[in-house]
Design a protein around this nucleic acid. Structure first.
Lengths: 191, 191, 191, 191
DNA sequence: GATGAATGAGCGTTCATTCAT
DNA sequence: CATGAATGAACGCTCATTCAT
């Protein structure tokens, strides 16, 4: 196992444990075990647990963004792009429930404390796509003239809520329901 | 300090610490300190930490529901009642940010595990107000024909998101913004 | 309830709890509860827990000795008296298993530490009957010429062991078995 | 200090503290101190205190049985074997007083609760030597026709009593006294 | 570089004892 | 006197982090 592999194994092990059992169920020793490395080894790759968790978060974003941007075409209308991103986001979380659960844990833990600025469950930072789209939307008067933060709330709030409820089994999202849910968000946001 | 006072002090101390620093920042010893009592005293009032936390939750609901139901008139139109509740909820969380933060911690911790079914950040089944209102809304075809869970997401998702962002200082919600935000939710939900 | 009654209630409650659950299952608060008095009240009658336990021990002996001495006739032969006491002792413990269990707990706890000199599971101190009997037995050459302590071991050792096993349910002692057991002891001790 | 040494140090420290002060005088922190290790270290070797205590018990038996079986010859008469085992047992406890005191504590504590069936102060079922010997003794009509449990009481009762009194300093057992004591037991048990 | 045994501060909880009422 | 609420030291145990090998 080379250096990068080891690092990846640690991240994977940590992500799984946290998603499955929460932070309280993911002590360093267990992460090391599941990653197949020694407990001390983790500290060669990550200064401490906070840093490991933070890295996990960054790592997640690096997988999330390419995914939802696949097939995203700047030349489409604002509405079309809005629907694409919302739909893609729901698909991503449904396909990767561990990632959803990790995010949920992350933003309500001491580890997420420094990332709180990454509002809206983390879907903002570096998310120029969303910023750009919403800026365009408001300046072109296609979206309501509300602060960006509120528009984000109207968008991500419902999406994350239904993703959570799907993952918790309170609802079974299918293509049609996803489409209609994202469409409803649009109606709340459009002018 | 009499018996009730002491119990209240413990609840207040616990609520504050949890809201400010999360569960990890609220060990029993610190709660006792801040409440001005001995560590063992807490256990005269609450069987164990889980029970204390659970009581904190119940206690919060006992303050939240009367508040948002003040001035709620069943004879108003569905839209009017929808706007009333949404506005009242935002007001409550803005006025009681500690309660918002406590709920946020609560539902993402082992303590809230049994209450997960109480979906949508504590607006739970027993909250017939919301259930009743939404049932009426869909059956009268005033609201979209979506599963209750999705409608709840479209309602509470944005509200809780903007409440959080206000509390975190990312926006300053005033009466007008509150009204417009809740109105936007309505537009997403109405048929 | 007068002063003596209260004291007796405390002793009774303590004895029961200790016999039933051991010392670890008899905190002062529970003793007070079962005695129907306040926790602080115990300290009016007994300086501290050690003293209470010690008193319990003395109290037991005050009930045990009159019992086994009933029908004890100094004019009987040494053998007859030996058999009488042994039989009476077994009867007492079978009839009062709580007392047996208390003694057992007592002599293996910090509380019994000062009473260790009361060897042979407590059946020695003040037990002039036994001392007298055995002195007589050795000086009259009816018993083996062994140190008193050894003779006591040959007497109380088996008796307490079978009492324990009866109470634990490993054996069902009836009159005949009691008689034969005490007789066997005698055979070991007699010259 | 290597791994085995550390484990042994912990066992030794625990045995000593329990023998000297009983279970109440052997908190984990003190055991760790006396063993010269950190408090947490104990838990690398023993899952919890119960397991540590249980191991202490097993460990003792592993030293006790080989010791008393040394020189034990099945071809000897029942009486000879009886005397051998009794003598060896007394020698063992006199030589290892800490072991005697540990056993005494063990069987009168919550820790020994599961071992209660191992009657007669730890001379338990696995001790086929004793069972076998006594079975042979009764079936060959060399021993009295009493239940095994009573015979055990007549054997171990006195032996453990005199061992205790020697350890407590009430008598000084020498070879002759040991021999005569065990012989007295035999007289009580033989037909 | 990798390891995992060792650490000890910190946790939730219990309970003998005190003392204001 | 009697009370029982209050105390806080002490317990068994966990786990992020270190460091000798």
């Amino acid at each position: 196992m080379n250096k990068t592999d080891k690092r990846d194994e640690i991240l994977r092990a940590a992500r799984e444990l946290i998603a499955e059992h929460g932070f309280h169920g993911a002590p360093m020793a267990l992460i090391a075990d599941r990653a197949g490395v020694g407990a001390g080894t983790i500290y060669r790759y990550f200064e401490n647990k906070d840093v490991l968790i933070g890295e996990l978060h960054r790592n997640l974003e690096e997988r999330l963004y390419p995914d939802i941007l696949t097939g995203y075409l700047p030349e489409q209308t604002i509405r079309e792009r809005f629907l694409h991103l919302g739909t893609a986001l729901l698909h991503y979380f449904i396909t990767n429930p561990l990632d959803y659960r990790f995010l949920q844990q992350f933003y309500n833990s001491p580890y997420g404390v420094d990332h709180r600025r990454d509002k809206i469950l983390g879907i903002k930072e570096g998310s120029d796509v969303f910023c750009t789209l919403f800026s365009e939307g408001t300046s072109q008067q296609v979206m309501k003239d509300l602060p960006m933060v509120v528009l984000f709330g109207l968008y991500f709030g419902p999406l994350l809520a239904v993703a959570r409820d799907h993952i918790l089994g309170f609802i079974q999202l299918d293509e049609e329901l996803i489409t209609r849910t994202v469409a409803a968000c649009w109606e709340g946001i459009q002018k």
